[in-house]
Design a protein around this nucleic acid. Structure first.
Lengths: 199, 199
DNA sequence: AAAATTTCTTGTCCTAGTTCAATGCCCACC
DNA sequence: GGTGGGCATTGAACTAGGACAAGAAATTTT
């Protein structure tokens, strides 16, 4: 039951049996059905979730009502809204929504505090997770600015090969920052390329 | 001398006099002249720098040789390459370069380790800095995807009003993910708007 | 202070990607 | 086992922004 999350948290910092016991004892196990909005815009995010099973998306809504997807979270992903409201005049417009029936381990901010209190080395593990997340986001910003739609889609398929089978295509378009119609055209072009002489 | 950096590190975690003394004793003060490349692509970044004075830029180079600017760092900013090379097959293509004569406080990875060893609560402060950085980057990704060039430029001016006076315009274009020529046209349009009836 | 280099502007032409339909598809659900 | 509502596809018309070029302005170097 706890092996997935314990592997995840131990990836860059190794913990003793005792530390992991404390960690596990503080986790709250939760099931959430498909299509549940777990965080609405303007709300404070009062959880940090580890996905045991299922698939969620985290997204902004822009001025024209369009979704911009920040993250797909599948098995073994950490999901939370970590944003500082400083950078938005309005309260954070982040939504978190399940796309399949999901199972999570969750922390409230308070239990996370309690964890750091009892076993301070977890602070480090979470710092490193954050850093990794930042690294991925920077890389994605770079891609968004400098690559064509097709290049972005190809890289997406490489990085997240299982996601296209699980979520509707227009969500992937939204993640890539292109229109759903154009993604469809990109795919058509790629399929045609494969029929011809393949390089 | 230490007040700037001590204020910065104490912003979200308050430290005792003793902790700050340890912190300050580990800092290395350094001057770096204008136009120095402090980190080349493919190198491991062996510093974490706090800008006391001056201005730097951190950037990627894309497949066509164009710069994509990730960060302008001015007074009181933290600059480092935090990326996990995991997400790039090639070694990280991040450059860090001074744009003015600069003064820094620096940590090597080892002294940062030593700091966490001696005063573990700094781990938390750095986690929060990282979180803030992530929040800013996510917001920027959102802007890059969902806003027009003019909207992005207007927000940039609001968030970083002093930077346009310090760096060449084409760097700002690169930060915003638009061409230098187009930024020039956006500015021309805005100036014309101001001459007319202002709203 | 002249020369050299970099930066900024402006115009023209071009294209990657958007918007708006229209059509068909694939399910989930009574 | 229909049927209704999201999905994907395709096409046509459009546009925000890019690429290129050439001149003007500013800044740096000598």
């Amino acid at each position: 039951m706890y092996t997935q999350i314990n592997n995840s948290i131990s990836r860059y910092v190794s913990f003793t049996k005792e530390e992991l016991d404390i960690f596990n004892s503080l986790l709250e196990h939760k099931k959430v059905p498909k299509k549940t909005i777990m965080l609405h815009e303007g709300e404070m995010c009062n959880f940090e979730a580890f996905v045991i099973k299922g698939c969620i998306r985290k997204y902004f809504i822009d001025a024209n009502g369009f979704e911009v997807i920040l993250q797909f979270g599948i098995e073994n992903a950490w999901v939370s809204d970590t944003s500082f409201s400083i950078y938005e005049d309005k309260p954070s417009q982040v939504f978190i929504e399940t796309m399949e029936d999901c199972e999570f381990f969750m922390f409230s901010p308070e239990t996370k505090e309690a964890l750091f209190e009892k076993a301070p080395r977890f602070e480090r593990a979470f710092r490193i997770l954050m850093q990794r997340n930042l690294s991925v986001t920077q890389h994605r910003l770079f891609n968004t600015i400098s690559k064509t739609a097709m290049e972005k889609y190809v890289e997406f398929l490489e990085l997240y090969p299982t996601i296209p089978q699980r979520v509707a295509q227009h969500y992937i378009a939204s993640y890539l920052g292109i229109s759903a119609e154009f993604l469809s055209k990109v795919r058509a072009k790629m399929a045609k390329g494969i029929e011809g002489i393949k390089i």
